[in-house]
Design a protein around this nucleic acid. Structure first.
Length: 375
RNA sequence: UGGGGUGUAGCCAAGCGGUAAGGCAACAGACUUUGACUCUGUCAUCUCACUGGUUCGAUCCCAGUCACCCCAG
């Protein structure tokens, strides 16, 4: 069985490659480069734009050392155009529409589990493998995606838009071990280039950026008013509604108001047409909560859940699952009715449905309601 | 230019003679394959509008100046 593992230059995929080899697979590795800072005009907010070596090349070097140490061949491929067309242009479009996109979900859907998978098949590999914290299980001729053993690192949220065929073509060697064990294995193997490397954060393949500056490369900023949604009064100025997400506290710059208790302000609503950012005072404010939402771009990995079924939903990565009842509106729209009001459910983010540990798939949050009214 | 009130960090705001609470914001760090949330830490030391005075000692008392607010004209 020939497997092509995506080797990122981090510790997770390195250990994943090792485990596969140990399990007897014929393992090759492939390093993907999907972002070209210069070609993509990624200057503002890029902390490494002037470095001698861009961080991706450092990652590549680290991957080379891992492959060498493990004795596996390393390929390299570019999906810069695919990433731009299928992931980044979507991200820009969503921000322009005042929503909060989740690029990494699209990255998995279109790059890792599509472009990369096709590339692997075309080149004679039977399967691909990833360093994701996720698990698959094959039962009665079907493949299911499950949460990883390490519930703290579970990344099935990011995999919610792939299908059964894609899952069944991929191995997740880290599904049954936790992160500390991964690091321990890396140490035992003395994978010096990655074993103590800090976990990567930021948008996958792009990396850490000053978010405001980064977006300025692609979307013009337009200052506007910040309005207290409870009292309908202007209490500040924003740099552009696209920079903010529902539930956000940081970056509003609103101080105390005479005669009022200062509890912190949170983004409650974005009015893109009037360029107004609505905020609410206090983290328990009613305006931050909703009790129902509509999701579209439905994708169910294995089985389609039933109308009226009670499931758990995750509305943001690393947020706990919350009970919902589902109701089909049409083929591509699902209504999620919350058991109680939930905070900061945000259009553009993914709503991922779980039945226990099974990740069923989900959709993208389109509209959010509270007591029958659009939020 | 009658009367009253206020002036403390970017914004609110305690302190009212003994050597500057707290909140918000900001910044830093932790967490994190979506820079959200959350958590931790930092943040007035020739300083309490300014200038004098009283006092062993003043943000706190007194006088004057300036600024702003309110009421009355």
């Amino acid at each position: 069985m020939k497997v092509l593992v995506g080797l990122s230059g981090g510790v997770d995929s390195a250990v994943a490659a090792y485990l596969l080899k140990k399990q007897g697979y014929e393992v090759s590795a492939c390093f993907m480069r999907n972002w070209d800072a210069l070609a993509n005009n990624d200057y503002l907010g890029n902390p490494t734009i002037n470095n001698d070596q861009c961080p991706q090349e450092k990652d590549y070097d680290d991957a080379v050392m891992v492959a060498k140490k493990l004795g596996i061949p390393l390929l390299r491929i570019d999906f810069v155009k695919e990433y731009w067309d299928d992931v980044f242009s979507y991200l820009i479009r969503e921000y322009e529409n005042g929503r909060t996109p989740n690029p990494d979900i699209f990255c998995n859907k279109y790059i890792k589990f599509d472009a990369f998978l096709s590339y692997a098949k075309k080149n004679g590999f039977d399967m691909i493998a990833m360093g994701h914290y996720a698990k698959r299980i094959d039962q009665n001729g079907k493949t299911y995606l499950l949460k990883s053993f390490d519930k703290n690192k579970d990344q099935t949220y990011f995999l919610s838009q792939i299908n059964q065929e894609q899952v069944s073509s991929c191995l997740f060697p880290l599904g049954d071990i936790d992160k500390p064990t991964v690091r321990q294995i890396a140490h035992e193997l003395n994978l010096s280039s990655v074993m103590d490397k800090k976990d990567s954060t930021g948008v996958c393949f792009i990396g850490e950026r000053n978010f405001k500056e980064f977006l300025k490369n692609y979307i013009p900023a337009q200052k506007g008013k910040i309005v207290d949604i409870e009292h309908n009064r202007v209490i500040g100025t924003h740099d552009g509604v696209m920079y903010y997400t529902i539930g956000q506290r940081k970056g509003l710059g609103i101080g105390g108001i005479s005669g009022e208790e200062a509890k912190g302000w949170f983004v409650a609503k974005k009015d893109i047409t009037n360029n107004i950012l609505y905020v609410a005072s206090g983290d328990e404010n009613d305006y931050l909560y909703s009790d129902c939402c509509l999701i579209n771009n439905l994708n169910f990995i294995t089985d389609k859940p039933l109308n009226g079924q009670k499931l758990n939903a995750k509305f943001r990565y690393r947020q706990e699952d919350k009970p919902v009842t589902i109701e089909y509106i049409d083929e591509n729209t699902l209504k999620l009715i919350f058991l109680e009001p939930y905070k900061a459910v945000t259009p553009g983010q993914a709503a991922v449905l779980y039945d226990g540990d099974i990740c069923l798939g989900g959709g993208l949050i389109d509209k959010v309601f509270y007591k029958g009214k659009l939020r």
